[in-house]
Simulated scan of single mutants.
Amino acid sequence: MSKVCEVCGKHPVAGRSISHSHRVSNRMFRPNIQKITIRDAKGHVRRANVCTSCMKAGKVERA
């Protein structure tokens, strides 16, 4: 499944984990993407990959 939100465009970002002893390892910050049924601007019902922050903010109209 795609890791990009179709509403806001949020995508995975690379970063680093730093332990207490300051050892550094690479990691990924991934958005919480869910596949939901939405009603788009034209009124059609379709499935889309949307992040949970867009769902909570009400940026999508659920069908």
Rank of each mutant, 00 (worst) to 15 (best):
M1G: 15
M1R: 15
M1T: 08
M1P: 01
M1I: 05
S2N: 11
S2F: 13
S2D: 10
S2H: 12
V4C: 00
V4M: 00
V4F: 02
C5S: 09
C5P: 02
C5F: 05
E6H: 07
E6Q: 12
V7R: 11
V7L: 13
V7F: 11
C8D: 07
C8P: 07
C8S: 02
C8V: 03
G9E: 05
K10N: 09
K10V: 00
H11P: 07
P12T: 00
P12L: 03
P12S: 01
V13H: 01
V13R: 07
A14L: 13
G15F: 06
G15M: 03
G15L: 06
R16D: 14
S17H: 15
S17T: 03
I18S: 06
I18N: 00
I18M: 09
S19E: 01
S19A: 01
S19T: 12
S19I: 02
S19R: 00
H20V: 00
H20Y: 15
H20Q: 10
H20L: 10
S21H: 14
S21P: 05
S21T: 13
S21N: 13
H22N: 11
H22E: 10
H22S: 13
H22T: 09
R23P: 09
V24L: 03
V24C: 08
V24T: 01
S25M: 09
S25A: 13
R27V: 04
R27H: 06
R27S: 04
R27G: 02
M28N: 12
M28S: 14
F29A: 04
R30E: 13
R30W: 12
I33M: 05
I33A: 04
K35Q: 07
K35C: 06
K35T: 10
K35D: 08
I36E: 04
I36F: 01
I36M: 05
T37S: 15
T37K: 14
T37G: 14
I38F: 07
I38Q: 06
I38A: 02
R39K: 06
R39L: 06
D40V: 01
D40P: 09
D40Y: 01
D40N: 09
D40W: 09
D40T: 08
A41L: 10
A41F: 11
G43N: 05
H44E: 15
V45M: 12
V45P: 08
V45K: 15
V45T: 15
R46M: 14
R46S: 10
R46H: 15
R47A: 10
A48M: 08
N49A: 11
N49W: 11
C51D: 04
T52Y: 09
S53L: 10
S53F: 05
S53W: 03
C54G: 08
C54A: 03
C54M: 00
M55R: 12
M55Q: 14
K56D: 10
K56S: 12
K56Y: 11
K56E: 13
K56I: 00
A57E: 13
A57H: 11
G58Y: 03
K59V: 01
E61Y: 15
E61C: 10
E61W: 15
R62T: 13
A63F: 04
A63Q: 02
A63E: 08
A63M: 06
A63W: 05
